[in-house]
Structure formats: C-alpha cells, structure tokens
Nucleic acid binder design. Sequence first.
RNA 1: GCCCCCGUAGCUCAAUCGGCAGAGCAGCUGACUCUUAAUCAGCGGGUUCUCGGUUCGAGUCCGAGCGGGGGCACCA
Length: 525
Amino acid sequence: MTASNAPEADSTDDLVAARRQKLRFLKEELGVDPYGGRVEGISSLKDARDAFDESAHLALEEDPEGEDRRPRRLVSGRVMQHRDMGKLVFMTLRDHTGDLQVSVSKAACDPAIFRLAKKLDYGDVVVAGGPMGRTRKGEICVWADRVEIHAKSLTPPPEKWHGLSDPEIRFRRRYVDLHANPEAILALQDRSRIVSRMRSFMERRDFLEVETPMMQPMAGGAAARPFVTHHNTLDLDLYLRIAPELYLKRLLVGGLPRVFEINRNFRNEGVDRSHNPEFTALEVYEAFGDCWTMMELTESMLHELAVASAEDRRQRGDESVGGTADAPILPFDGIPVDWAKPFVRVTYSELFTRAHGFDLQDEAAVRAKAAELGIEDAATRDHWLLVDDLFEREAEDLIDPARPTFVTGYPSAVSPLTRPMADQPHLCDRWDIFVAGMEVGPAYTELNDPEIQQAKFSEQLSGADDEAEAFRTLDEDFLTALRVGMPPAGGLGIGVDRVVMLLTGMRTIREVIAFPLMRPEGGSE
RNA sequence: GCCCCCGUAGCUCAAUCGGCAGAGCAGCUGACUCUUAAUCAGCGGGUUCUCGGUUCGAGUCCGAGCGGGGGCACCA
C-alpha cells in the first residue's frame, strides 16, 4: 500500500474549493454556523404541502391588506434546485417524503436571510419557515421569512436532470443515491413496512419472535458454504450462520411451541441479481403443525402483504399496479404477478413428468436423460440427486412465473431434515414456493425422530467432498436435543429480500438492501 | 472460479478508418421579483480506470491488472 491519501488534482477540487469559499462566507460575513443545530417543530415536506389552505391563500390574494390566515410551517430538506432571479430566490427542497418549493423574496425577509438564500448550493441541508402559499404560476411553496443552513455540502452533487445512474456509484455511495433517486428511498421505506407487516402477521398468529446465534461453532441447518471468523480470547473458530434452523428447533424442544425469527443469514456463495452474501430470512416453526399448515400460513401472509403493498402503491399513484384490492397484480421484471388466492399448487413429480415425459422413479430413463444433458457421473451418482438436477434444469421452467406456485413433494434425498412420506418414503413433506421464476422459500414437515435424523446426517456427511467436510460436522448437541423429544412441527423459511423485490417491483436484490456488498474500491491485496 | 460487455470532466454522454479530447448539466463572474431542467452574457474545468506493448502518432489496437454490468457455475 503506497502513499496518496491526498486528493488527486482534478476538477473536483475546483468545485469543492468553491463550496469551501462559501462556507467561509457564511461564517465570516454572515456569522452563521454552517453546521446548524437542534431545531424543534419541523414538518415533513409532505405534511407542509398538505397544510396548504387554498381559501386562506385566495383571501390574501383578494385583499393583501387583510389578515394573513395562511398556515405557517417549518420545513427541512436538501437543496435540489436553486434558481436565483435577482430579488427572488426559488429553491426545491427534498426530504424522505418528497419535494417542496421554498420561495424567498427580498422584500419579505431580513437582508441577512436573503443573502444566505442566494448563497445556497445544491446539496445543502437547510431549514426554512414561513406561510404556505402559491406562486403566480400556481406552485405550492413555503414563502420563507426564515432560512437557515444546517449542513453545508462540500461535495458536488449528481446532475439534476439525469441524476445518478451508474450502479457502481449508486451502491458505493448509497447516501447520495438515496437523495438523488427518490425510488431508492421508497424501496427502503417499502421494505420496512413489509417487514413490519410480516412481524405483525406472525404475532397475530401467536408466534413468539426470538433471536438465535448468528455466530455458531458449527454452521448447520442448510447446505451452504459459511463464512469463518474467530474469537480471540476463546481461541475459537466460529461460523456466521447459514440458517437459524437448528437453534429454533432447540427452542421447540425447550417448550416454545410457535417461534419465528427475522434476521440475517450469511452464505459464502456467488452474488447475482437475487443473491446477496448476507440476506434476511423469516424462519418459522410451529409445534404440531406440518408443511401444510405452513402452506396456509405462507399463502395468507404473502397475500396480505401483496394486498397492503398494492394499496400503498395505488395511493401514491403507481399506475403499474393492476388487479383488484383483494387480487392485486404487481408487475415484476415485466411479469404481471397475480397474487390472487389461492396460489397454484403442483406436485414435484407431476412437473417432472411434464418436463421429461417419464416418471421420476424410472431410474434407467433418469440416468439416460442425465447422460444426454451431460450431467457428471450420470451412471453412478445417486438416482435422486440426478432427479433433482433434471428437475432444476427443465421442470422449474414450466412453473407459471405470473402465479405464486407451491411445488410439493420433494425427494427425501435432497431434504435431510424433512420427514419422509409414510406411503412413499422416497418423497417427503416439503414444498417450495416460486414466484416470477425466483425461489422464495421452502417449508417442511420437520423430522423429529432422532435415529432417522442421525442416519440422514451421517449419510449426508459421507457424501460430502473434502471442501464440504471442512465445515460440515455432525451437530451432536442438536441430536441430543432431539432425543429429549421435539414435538412434530412444521417449519418455514422465506427470503425476505426477495419478497420485498416482488412486492416493490425492484429487479435486483441490491435495490432493497440499504448497503449491498460491493468489492472495496482500488482493491490491491 | 469461467465466458461476454463496459470504464472519457463532479454527473449524463459524444469523439468517423488510429490523426489537435467535445457537448449538456453543475461550477465561477455579472444581469434579472414569479421560476419549474429558469433565461441571457462571459470564464474556467481532463492521469480518457491503472501498468506495459505496437505505432511517426493510441480514448480508439494488443497484453496484464483493478472495478462494474450481464450470463454460467456454486447455492437442499
């Protein structure tokens, strides 16, 4: 790592220098603190706009000498536009609720205030107060007699018309993106609302929210590569969790019959449009339930969330929302996703047969097809693993992307924590829900027989390659817990980020995560 | 990890066949009491991602690296 933290000489310097010059002017000429302080009684820009009173405005128009009944508001925001007309300054402020114009007339305010208003830059954080009125062109605005700067922006902002579109800068400097692109802040507000409704739904169903370890001595509950970290004083390697499952089940053993957790999982895998290395999952366990009670719960919850999101979006004038109040259609990546109940249900084996023309139990046909598709070890690998390969390659594509779809009855071989079906043990009581081509989450009738569980763990370990073996170890304590006795249960995992994508129409997972992972800039070693 | 594409002013983008690196916005100076991407007059602004190569000459061609986008793989 060599030298230069020093800013390089480019035109940024000139732009910053101009702003520093104004900073000095504010301090020395106007005697104001350009970094402000506490302010009481600030209205959001939306509330201020809503407070505008047409009759009070008109009354004053007709009789300028009469009583001014216009409501006064104090607002704050970032300067997004600034038009200096000489003795009249117009600026547009932006906050988390939208934009509002502030108009400053030389005749109507203190000379020092007017000098400050003229000197403001795009990006400055200001507070302005005055009566709510209209301009001659009809624009609702604050006719400000109070203007203060509360944070001088030293950094030149993005271009006002085209804005900031370079995804590299958008996600690296999200704080700029969020005020430059109103959709960005909307996505995070929508996310918050969706998660809050999820939580409220689970609480209404009498589930208890819990928090289980994110740092685990063994990374269990899923087959994914974990991140490794280290505890110094204990001299202990720890894994960032890949799933909370094994701990939530311990709580079932302990006697909490309905638990859920909304929190981060970490998987050391590739990054793409629908995968961020840390992602938020809703995980649910219900004693004496099964994957079918989880199906009802999931359908009701997602439907409720979709209805609420559609309503939010309609209210803000989003014309892309279709369908009816109870059966909204929310477009995602060009697909009009229809959230009407009931969602589609289809069995794994039916989809398989439709895709390939033979039954998934027909081992010879499966091996032949796998060989034809060039799948490795088509002759020797486990039949059911090949089945799942074939399923993922062809059968998933047959699911209607415009309808939330439950695919039921997965092979037991790919679901080691799931109870096999009594009448056909090669399949198990598990489903996955797909929406718009994305896997949103699976649910299971959980395995609570410690003997079968132990056998399945061992089987899975023996099939692991060297790399997998390095972090997949048998969780003895979990088996001990099962031997204490876990009630039969239904379990569910939902990818929260993906649900938010679907309900907000955001095409990439990064849009719905405040700070998605980016490789560090100028990354030498 | 693999394949394809991209990286030019603060931002959004041009630059013909390899021939003096440009525009709009923003910035600076000035004018303007009703603007809405305000307008008008004038002025500045570049390591063309980095390093190396080919060439009389490289933003442009070649190689390597860094970063980004898309796809594949990985991902119960």
